[in-house]
Design a protein around this nucleic acid. Structure first.
Lengths: 209, 209
DNA sequence: CAAAGATAATTAACATTGTTAATCATACAA
DNA sequence: TTGTATGATTAACAATGTTAATTATCTTTG
């Protein structure tokens, strides 16, 4: 009886080690993938380039991930964290209110302008069969909302009337910013950054009349 | 002297024939490409599948187009014409005014919902080096504006005040619709069409308070 | 400590892609 | 009829994602 118990514990510890090792391996590949995406974007991303950067053979990836797309979409979790952190840090000096909300929106868009490859992964890359990637897709479609959640709630509370209109505007905002980013990053329109900034500012301001 | 003249004319006719033949060949490939894009989208599009459909060998394409991307972006010209035609036809029964403008926006979006592959080409496909594709890119970034131009001008004339705000709203509108389409077609959000319609309606209505 | 067995990593191999080079066919000119 | 230009085709290459076969490593056990 005691022996069975001991064996069980050893087995559990063994499994825990295995999990740690597996997580570590996954981390190596995810880190390599993130660097490549942030650097050159999807065009230079391949199962071979990832493996090279991680210091393993390309086939090893398939011991830890179903396919290369899985690996790419796993990076989104980290990117989102990083993005939220960057926005928080860039807007820390502004006191809560409408201006801070606007600044956060700008900072959010700025993150993707700085890393166009991440924008590719978020919105351009084809997601293949969803299902097990569903939660990641939700993270993506909610990315801006997550970043501005606090500011938005604060403003909503100070203007307790017309709740419906507020939610409405939040949606409209997200679609506009993503649309502007899409044309700017993927279609070079407008062709210079200052004009892009102006368009974005107009769009954001327009929502608060 | 007369002979030189005759030779010149023959040469001109010869060149004209050549041009006709070349245009015809290009047309075969463009037609095949359009069908594939409208059917299965970019995922089933390859230089081989195009050539198969056109009834030629894959290498023949390179006698008429610089590369496969060139061919794809040439299709945009036809698609845009078709889209404008479809919108015009679908909204013919509505009398000019705000409601017709809204209907046109819906019809424009509906065209891309019907052919997600065309949306891919317009906004998702990477354009490579622009330059000789610049005019196509402009067509893309102006697609919605071209479709609603007449309605927009009509409304602008009936409300001659605040010109600036109107242009502003036109931009905001385009970005919103493209953003909604992007999330719906490429990220499956929202997951059903009726909800997509509702979001679109809200966004469009919101611009006219 | 050494052999056996499991696990993990690598190399080989394949199919598909875009693209270019080499080859072949066909129409026209001399 | 024979040479020549045009243009269509096949061969070939490199890069890609993926799977199968093989090798190395580590663990367990006699």
């Amino acid at each position: 009886m005691l022996i069975i118990f001991a064996a069980l514990i050893i087995f559990i510890l063994f499994m825990k080690n295995k999990e740690i090792q597996e997580a570590r391996m996954k981390g190596y590949f995810i880190e390599a993938t993130k660097e490549l995406i942030k650097g050159e974007g999807l065009k230079s991303l391949s199962v071979r380039s990832i493996a090279d950067k991680a210091g393993y053979s390309f086939a090893t990836i398939y011991n830890y991930f179903r396919d290369v797309n899985d690996l790419v979409f796993l990076c989104v979790i980290d990117f989102q964290k990083e993005c939220e952190e960057a926005v928080k840090q860039k807007t820390a000096h502004i006191e809560v209110g409408k201006e801070k909300l606007k600044a956060k929106i700008f900072a959010w868009a700025g993150y993707f302008v700085e890393y166009p490859g991440i924008f590719e992964v978020y919105y351009l890359a084809k997601s293949g069969e969803l299902g097990h990637r569903q939660s990641t897709i939700e993270l993506i479609t909610n990315s801006l909302n997550l970043v501005i959640e606090d500011e938005w709630n604060f403003i909503k509370e100070t203007n307790p009337n017309n709740y419906e209109v507020f939610e409405q505007k939040k949606n409209a905002l997200q679609y506009q910013v993503i649309g502007i980013l899409l044309l700017y990053l993927n279609r070079n329109f407008p062709s210079d950054y200052s004009e892009f900034e102006r368009l974005l500012k107009y769009s954001v301001d327009g929502l608060f009349e």
